[in-house]
Design a protein around this nucleic acid. Structure first.
Lengths: 205, 205
DNA sequence: TGGGCGATTGGCCCAAAGGCCAATAGCGCC
DNA sequence: GGCGCTATTGGCCTTTGGGCCAATCGCCCA
């Protein structure tokens, strides 16, 4: 575990603001990485530990909303807190519909900002806990798990996959064991936390 | 079924705007009820059919956000689409965090408005479908269902409730039958749609 | 007071899910 | 070639979950 401390990725073209945010966040015990543009962030080596994004809306090149869209496409993306100076209502609403954790306006109150970051990191923790447990599953185990969670009986899954019911039982048991789920309902909820690239349940524009 | 057509409740203190919205919505085939204030809406006989709210933010007396908070407290509330003239970003973000379906600004494009209403009604349909199926459950059946969904085995539920495992089986079977769930995972998802007074998963301010 | 409904329980039996031990086969790596 | 991991399958036995029929009891309503 080289990454015990959560990392806040600050993406804002205003250098002085970045520095100010870094100071604030560091004193709270977070690791911070600043980027002057979305491109710079995208160029960074992928990160999949605990953390979140603190993202400016208006930036030269790729703007905040566009970056959000790109990142949200894959499920492994970090929760995003927007921080913007001259945003309008439609932009902020869109960002929220796309799954942003919060949308703050500059100048933001330190307490609000830290609260939003905490909320984002909490969300990330939940995400990671689920993914971590699902990560050790083999492809076949994951496949069986999904069918189980859809409500198919072992017999049906076996037919669907062209294998024996016995084998299904084995994969199913391993999936339960590896994920640590102690009941079917628990597995159902865990699996739900899996694939969800789409934000909660709101309509997409 | 006296209420086949969905009802859009328009709450706005601007009478002429209300009339315009009514015209637009009626031509789309919706039933419309207009109110000049939140109080007027609250005074109306409770409605639990298909429908949604089209709500102005700034109004004398109880404002839109406050009404949303009151309504959101109970799970039976209708989905809300905000429509506001001079809203600022924090207000709109709060509304979204509280579970609003959308937040439009005046003057709103007809197409956007109708799209938002459609999304809200769709959400309502899902809500209703779940509640309708859960409505016929007796208190005991519902109680057992919740424990089942939490992952307890029949034997444990029996001990918890101080009754026989046999009885638990009966309640469980009835719950499945009444809700139409054909598998445990299905029941889990159905029950999740039940109690949720809290908006999806975002942080509450 | 009789009927209907929900809560409880029993008995019987069958189907589904899980646990344990063992064995074979294919693949990639040391 | 051998080791380790995953996929598959078999057999056997136990635990759970469900289905069917039947019976009591308490309560509320016509």
């Amino acid at each position: 575990m080289p990454e015990a401390r959560p990392v806040v990725f600050v993406i804002d073209d205003d250098a002085s603001l970045r520095r100010a945010l870094e100071r604030l966040l560091r004193t709270e015990g977070y690791a911070v990485e600043g980027f002057a543009s979305a491109q710079a962030y995208l160029a960074r080596a992928p990160y999949d530990g605990p953390g979140c994004l603190l993202l400016d809306l208006a930036m030269p090149g790729i703007d905040g909303l566009e970056l959000q869209q790109r990142l949200t496409r894959d499920a492994a993306s970090l929760p995003i807190v927007f921080l913007s100076g001259h945003a309008n209502v439609p932009e902020s609403v869109n960002a929220m519909k796309m799954g942003a954790v919060d949308f703050l306006t500059k100048p933001a109150d330190d307490a609000d900002l830290l609260a939003a970051v905490r909320a984002a990191l909490l969300q990330r923790d939940t995400q990671l806990a689920a993914r971590e447990r699902l990560a050790t599953l083999s492809a076949r185990e994951r496949e069986v798990m999904h069918l189980v969670v859809e409500g198919l009986r072992n017999k049906e899954i076996a037919a669907r996959l062209g294998i024996t019911e016995k084998t299904v039982k084995v994969h199913r048991a391993r999936a339960m064991e590896k994920t640590g789920a102690t009941s079917l309902p628990e597995l159902v909820r865990l699996a739900a936390e899996d694939s969800p690239p789409s934000p909660p349940d709101r309509a997409q524009p």
